[in-house]
Design a protein around this nucleic acid. Structure first.
Ligand SMILES: [Zn+2]
Ligand SMILES: [Zn+2]
Ligand SMILES: [Zn+2]
Ligand SMILES: [Zn+2]
Lengths: 153, 153
DNA sequence: CAATATATGATACGTTATATCATTTCTATT
DNA sequence: AATAGAAATGATATAACGTATCATATATTG
């Protein structure tokens, strides 16, 4: 079983646990995002799906499916870049932690890393001191990836 | 001298130091953002300026002016919310630090606080461990403000 | 004043996202 | 299997966000 098939079967199991339906269409969109190996805007993804899989998606459908996949933690929405990226940890088994995204400003490469507990604590404390309540500690950071950083020298 | 006039004179001085021109139009846009007391999208601001000051702004002009004000650190762009907010520290005198924004998901209220050095260090270390280079440590966090949090109980 | 740089006006267009209503597919119950 | 209700998808239109381009006006400098 290749890697994508394995991820899909994990995704399917995870949805089943939550009483959610990973339909064929949703599965194909997820597969597209996985194969593309990068963050894509909804419209990027529409183009990609048409070119690579000859599948016509409308904006409405695409956003709906991406929202669904995000609600199942199979896909993450990067608010900073207006893009969507497949979760890097679908087949890990463990519960999904709060993600932290490193977004390359040059090439849109995205790395998903876990946030350290201590950092979340510090953040939460900062926010509380300011009288606010933290809703989601998901972080998105403007970065350069290794490749682009080395080129930029 | 009322508070806004005071802020504007600081802003003017700051621009002069940088060899930048705070034109009348730019000053009026900054005044609008200051008076509105909250984060606004470019189009929100266009509406606001028309209603409150009977000033017609085109999108192009508005974005240009907002970009200018942001480059002078008089206004900050919130990438997460696609909104702009007047800097809270224009008349502080001290050099502008890397800001951290607490954005109320309910009412769009924004609080600007400084990032603690230790937090920046931790972030930078995390990013380096992942092989990336941090471009800007500006943080934008989904929160609830005090008012909205108390209502939500 | 003339030459240059900076700022603004005006029009069009491209991208991103949602609203709305119709149709199809799935699920559960009889 | 038939039916009814829920969930998913299709289709069309439109709203919201942002930029490209070229023309005009204003400020700065020599
Ligand atoms: Zn993930
Ligand atoms: Zn890169
Ligand atoms: Zn500021
Ligand atoms: Zn609020």
């Amino acid at each position: 079983m290749n890697s994508i098939a394995k991820i899909l079967s994990h995704a399917e199991a995870s949805c089943q646990t939550n009483g959610a339906r990973l339909t064929d269409k949703r599965k194909r969109v997820l597969t597209g995002l996985l194969k593309s190996q990068k963050a894509q805007s909804a419209y990027d993804l529409i183009d990609y799906m048409r070119k690579e899989f000859d599948e016509a998606l409308q904006p409405t459908t695409t956003y709906r499916i991406l929202d669904f996949l995000a609600s199942e933690n199979l896909v993450h929405k990067l608010h900073l870049a207006n893009k969507y990226v497949a979760c890097s940890h679908i087949s890990c088994g463990h519960a999904h932690e709060v993600p932290q995204f490193l977004i390359c400003d040059e090439c849109s490469n995205v790395k998903e890393i876990g946030i350290k507990k201590s950092l979340i604590n510090t953040l939460t404390r900062n926010v509380e001191e300011a009288g606010y309540v933290l809703q989601s500690p998901q972080l998105e950071l403007h970065c350069l990836c290794q490749d682009c950083a080395s080129k930029a020298v």
